[in-house]
Design a protein around this nucleic acid. Structure first.
Lengths: 182, 182
DNA sequence: TAGCACATGTAATAAGTTACATGATTTT
DNA sequence: AAAATCATGTAACTTATTACATGTGCTA
């Protein structure tokens, strides 16, 4: 079976559909915009861009900023087509690896205070996530008023909000079940 | 920096704390019990067990079943200690890679019907998850009455339930926002 | 002038899946 | 007799992060 699973190329195509960019800019924009649910490192980006040029999915242009080397990539028709094809295919879901649940599964081997510590920590992390997402939800419409992407960007933020709120409730419920035992 | 990130070893230690098992049994039990949030393949398990024996974390015993080769692994004191240390450390959360959100982020480049298809599909997957989790939640207490692990196993199931329900609501809300545009 | 942001790239390492290779026993 | 399950293991490949290597320009 020859299942191709790299969505690095498609991620870069998607980002370049927003605007032409350098590898460095791509990295920055990726972590700013989709960093909550996706990531790409330089070690992936630069080799991928090279391959994409070879395959005719993108074009490079030398655009030094001052004396600084800089290569700006933009989509070709083939790249745009490839992106559209990929968008039309169903999303694969990855094997979720959840270390918190893994540890909790072995909870009977832990001291109750350790279990509580895991849950409290998770609650706190979710709280931080929630605050971050709420800020984004509030500010995005101002920053991108009229942008056809706004609606979809908000969709992704609300996914995070829905998830974080539900998991907070789960944390509280689980902590309560730990209290009952004391 | 020398951050060790393999929790395969710890997963196997945890499973072996439930009962001594062969590599083959470990694989089976892992996918049955924690398969919804964790996975280990043979390609990981067998080499890991070898290393664990070398490090003195587990002991092997030849226990052929009939004429069939079979090696049963059990925890040593060192293995038990290592497991406890790991359980006491905070859970690291992984870089979530969510391809659905990645595609939705580029939603303005898709036909609305394609976006809807993604959401509908996700809704259906969540529905299947939900049914699976509900069955587990119902049957686990019967199958493992009195087991000190039960409480924690239910905790992990309820995590899945909470998440799936929240994401279903998010799907509905998102689909509604797509309708408004028609 | 030191430090940070900009900028590109490779090498080493880690982590994991899938396919291959082999063989016995049990079930249909 | 064939197919499924039990059983162990290795090899090839894929994916991804981190560290290294190098250099420019701007700002405090």
């Amino acid at each position: 079976m020859n299942e191709i699973r790299t969505s690095t190329v498609e991620t870069l195509l998607g980002m370049l559909s927003l605007k032409p960019m350098s590898g460095y800019e791509l990295r920055g924009l990726i972590s700013e915009s989709i960093g909550n649910f996706w990531s790409e490192s330089f070690g992936q980006i630069y080799p991928a861009l090279k391959r994409m040029v070879a395959e005719g999915l993108v074009e490079v242009e030398d655009a030094p900023s001052g004396g600084r080397e800089r290569k700006v990539y933009s989509l070709t028709a083939a790249g745009r087509q490839r992106l559209e094809e990929w968008l039309g295919m169903p999303a694969r879901d990855q094997v979720a690896r959840n270390e918190l649940l893994l540890k909790l599964f072995f909870g009977s081997g832990m001291k109750p205070e350790q279990v509580r510590a895991l849950l409290v920590r998770k609650r706190e992390e979710l709280d931080a996530d929630l605050k971050r997402y709420e800020t984004i939800e509030r500010e995005l419409p101002r920053q991108h008023a009229g942008n056809p992407g706004l609606k979809f960007w908000l969709m992704t933020v609300r996914y995070g909000l829905a998830e974080a709120r539900a998991l907070q409730a789960w944390c509280d419920e689980s902590l309560k079940s730990m209290e009952e035992e004391r």
